[in-house]
Nucleic acid binder design. Structure first.
Ligand code: FES
Ligand code: FES
Lengths: 159, 159
DNA sequence: TAAAACCCTACCGTTTTTGTCAAGTATTAT
DNA sequence: ATAATACTTGACAAAAACGGTAGGGTTTTA
């Protein structure tokens, strides 16, 4: 239940690789492909979307590649997934176009809405920088920043 | 992104209808079908799963129908969705069988795991009883039910 | 014994996902 | 200038998941 598409998964992993080169070194698709084990052709589609969304920019020609368009602490996981999978909308009734006629009498509508907001809030608090550092914060609803409890996750080893 | 299947959605709405008859009145598939606007044949599949999972029981023959197997405050939304859509697993790597070889070196694995646990925790705190009463807290949203004083559930467990 | 109501499972059209492929365009090094 | 590098774009297709339908059963009650 609630499966994330591979585009979303690969996208975040690709952004992680690009973030590692920031701000000095453009990272090529080929490098990302080798490090994250995703085909070049598929990555092209993914990175294209992310570029059009302004999350990364590209440098063509030899020595080129992709670099972040802004620093890693200003790019949330939510912003990446939003571009690749569209906004969080657990039901079609919740989509911007929506147009469900049952909406006012629907028992579950507010429940799905609340859950979606919960997910979105979580993903918004986590940036590429957090991902690189392995620092996640457990979101505590309306909890203030000083009330957040940092959870240190195991550092990642690189292949 | 993160779409819930119709089976899951209809399942919760069907359980809501069955809960309304608890404990005295069995609710027939036909009634659920009419009230929630879902075909009888499709509901049969859904209710069958929920019955096998022990969430509801059925009474055959005329005057029969479905009733809850335990009280509404002991049936969480999570338990319903788990039966109809399987456990929350945002990636295939997170599934019980799983078997991803990259798991130890994967940058994002713990992120998806954390998000999945967040969702599961949220859905576990909300029961059918909460759903019937409209008593759940919409994070960052507008709880636009009656003027009843909203009871704040704790979507997140802070260890 | 007939009607009400649940039980089972096979099937099937559509959509989404998950990519591949081929033919570009832009930039730089030499 | 030319070759090599690297991003750009659109078309396409296999495979899986989704969202049901169909049609036969069985059990229970009046
Ligand atoms: S069915 Fe559309 S809002 Fe519930
Ligand atoms: S790719 Fe399997 S755990 Fe990340």
């Amino acid at each position: 239940m609630l499966r994330l598409s591979t585009k979303g998964q690969y996208g975040v992993r690709a952004m992680y690789e690009i973030a590692r080169g920031y701000p000095a070194t453009p990272v090529t698709i080929k490098e990302i492909s080798e490090r994250q084990d995703v085909s070049v052709a598929y990555l092209e589609q993914i990175l294209n979307k992310l570029r059009k969304a302004g999350l990364i920019k590209s440098i063509r020609g030899p020595g080129g590649g992709y670099i972040l368009n802004r620093s890693a602490d200003k790019i949330s996981i939510a912003s990446i997934l939003n571009e690749l999978e569209g906004p969080v909308a657990l039901t079609s009734c919740l989509e911007p176009e929506g147009g469900c006629v049952r909406i006012d009498s629907c028992v579950t509508h507010l429940l799905w809405k609340a859950l979606g907001e919960q997910v979105e809030a979580f993903l918004k608090t986590i940036t590429l920088k957090n991902l690189m550092a392995g620092d996640f914060y457990a979101l505590g609803g309306t909890a203030k920043k000083e009330m957040r409890r940092p959870v240190r996750l195991k550092p990642q080893s690189q292949p």
